[in-house]
Design a protein around this nucleic acid. Structure first.
Lengths: 145, 145
DNA sequence: GCCTAATAAATTGCATACAATTAAATTACA
DNA sequence: TGTAATTTAATTGTATGCAATTTATTAGGC
């Protein structure tokens, strides 16, 4: 493939990531709105269900988001009664995010979502795993993780 | 891999797309800002350099964006003197987007960007092509294209 | 101990995204 | 032919994203 060809939209890898990411989120949206969640709020909870009681900083490095995005998002999750935000007593610079009982309970209700999403498609678990691993390898090669 | 394991953030394919897309755009940002462009503006121009004189509708289906996003973005490109926006005389519902002379000239200046971006990494053309094709296949299987 | 550097969140400003609605134009069809 | 349905952009409202700045707190060097 020559240079000119590589510049076409359909040959650009970044655009493939961009488009696919958005289309996937579009499929998630109706399933998550059942629980009053956006996709970003959902992955924030996924991170907390794996490891609770972490700082905004740690959450941000996990989700590739900064405080400019997370602070208002976390305030919404707090207002919804799913998490608490408290300054770390031993270092007042840190804000510790913790799940509430309601936030923990939501996990069981939401855990079917990805299975429901893929269930209606031609995509197999092997497809998912293989592609995910290749993206991880790519990100390492790009020096972005 | 069991169900519980699949729900972890690092095993979620959608999150891989989301994170990788954002990290790639972060690498593009400094290269594009040299030309006063954002990533979304850049792919809009990529689409127009391939096919000029198309409607907002067609541009949107190409970029997976709707008029809510495109209208203000196209107004900015128009204000920057890169495109024109005109109602189609034969069907006044359509708005035709056309590159200006300046918009066409920009192509030569910007065409090095992806090569500069990948040039500093461990990623080969073969890596890019292979991954891009797999994403395209995945999107077809998801029924999203 | 004091002052400077470094760190973590929050805030501000700008640019997307997208659902839902509105407005204008065209099409379909009774 | 006249009107309802459809189509295309634009608008409105809400939710990210992120760079740059600000504020508060802590760490480090002397």
């Amino acid at each position: 493939m020559d240079r000119r060809e590589l510049l076409k939209l359909d040959n650009q890898l970044c655009f493939a990531f961009y488009a696919c990411s958005k289309e996937m989120m579009k499929l998630y949206r109706p399933l998550l709105s059942e629980f009053g969640l956006t996709y970003t709020q959902y992955i924030t909870l996924l991170a907390l269900w794996e490891k609770d009681g972490i700082t905004v900083k740690e959450l941000g490095s996990r989700l590739f988001l900064d405080s400019g995005t997370l602070t208002p998002l976390l305030k919404k999750l707090e207002a919804a009664g799913l998490i608490t935000r408290n300054r770390d007593k031993s270092d007042e610079r840190n804000v510790i995010i913790e799940l509430t009982e309601q936030g923990r309970k939501l996990q069981q209700q939401v855990e079917e979502v990805p299975f429901n999403l893929y269930g209606k498609t031609q995509v197999s678990i092997e497809d998912i795993t293989s592609l995910r691993e290749q993206i991880a390898k790519f990100m390492r090669k790009m020096g972005t993780k």
